[in-house]
């Protein structure tokens, strides 16, 4: 949006062009968010009349162990973001060196992104079962079984590793490869002449040159963690065992659609909304910085 030429306006035309979008957003985004804030002060089953209870939902929430588990789990997902960033950058750097078969590797690692969270969630729910291929192999090697989806601490870490690191790898490879291909080739040649090895080239040339892409990647990962995890959790663990794989998003779903405490779930939604607002501010600041 750099084309600020004079002050002459285009009259009504822009609003006509924007009308379909803005009508849809008003109905399906702004209205729901405003209603969420209002219903967070009520006791409401999702139908029928509601009762104003003001801050009671928030008080319940602060005392609710499920809520704090959700926050903790969401934070744990965030801790996987650095690992995901490093692993993705490292493998991108491998592929960038033009090792044989790099295109095939890139395509295969992209498959999870094609199949989407629902299919991948169900696929891993089969693969990680006690009688799945992975556990059969582990049993052959060690004689014991690892209950990935039954032991709470393993289940939540499986969700974190799979969603944040594994499922985004293929996407990140394409993204970072495109970014690294935009780097001036002569910089790499100069580094090579200086005798820089693989690691020095990666940390002194590649990563600094695509700094903005890396920062956008981190913002993107935050969005995924806070706002895009529902489908994967719902199909992999369904929040379980117990509520050990609840995230904020999943908690909202359970409160609203399985316990029918819609008013209470709205209080959780307001918390999630505040987190999203912070991510959005980070995103906008980053864009401003890049444009300068």
């Amino acid at each position: 949006m750099h084309n600020r030429r004079g002050f002459e306006r285009d009259g009504a035309a822009p609003y006509v062009f924007l009308a379909p979008l803005l009508v849809l957003l008003a109905a399906f985004m702004i209205y729901p968010v405003v209603m969420n804030i209002i219903t967070s002060f009520t006791e409401w089953k999702g139908y029928g009349p509601w009762k104003w209870i003001w801050l009671a939902n928030y008080k319940t929430m602060i005392a609710d162990e499920e809520f704090w588990t959700s926050i903790k789990n969401t934070a744990l997902m965030v801790l996987y973001i650095p690992l995901s960033t490093i692993v993705t950058l490292l493998i991108t750097a491998f592929l960038r060196e033009g090792i044989r078969g790099w295109k095939v590797y890139r395509a295969i690692l992209y498959i999870p992104n094609l199949l989407g969270y629902v299919l991948m969630g169900v696929i891993f729910s089969i693969y990680l079962r006690d009688d799945g291929v992975l556990n059969m192999a582990i049993k052959r090697l060690t004689g014991s079984t690892i209950h990935f989806l039954i032991t709470p601490v393993l289940a939540i870490n499986a969700v974190g590793f799979l969603l944040v690191v594994f499922l985004h790898l293929g996407f990140g490879l394409i993204y970072f490869l495109a970014a690294m291909n935009g780097i001036d080739k002569s910089i790499y040649e100069a580094a090579l002449i200086d005798g820089a090895g693989f690691w020095r080239t990666l940390f002194k040339v590649s990563i600094p040159s695509i700094r903005f892409s890396v920062e956008f990647w981190v913002v993107f990962s935050f969005i995924e963690v806070f706002a895009r995890m529902f489908s994967f959790i719902h199909t992999l663990t369904q929040g379980g065992p117990g509520y050990s794989t609840f995230t904020l998003e999943y908690g909202i779903f359970i409160q609203a659609f399985s316990k029918f405490k819609v008013g209470y779930s709205s209080a959780w939604s307001v918390v999630l909304f505040l987190f999203c607002a912070m991510i959005s501010i980070a995103q906008i600041r980053l864009m401003k910085r890049r444009d300068e």
Partner: peptide
């Protein structure tokens, strides 16, 4: 741009 990152569960009930 802000709305593009909204989680679906934030909107689902309404």
């Amino acid at each position: 741009l802000f709305m593009s990152i909204f989680p679906q569960l934030l909107l689902a009930t309404q």
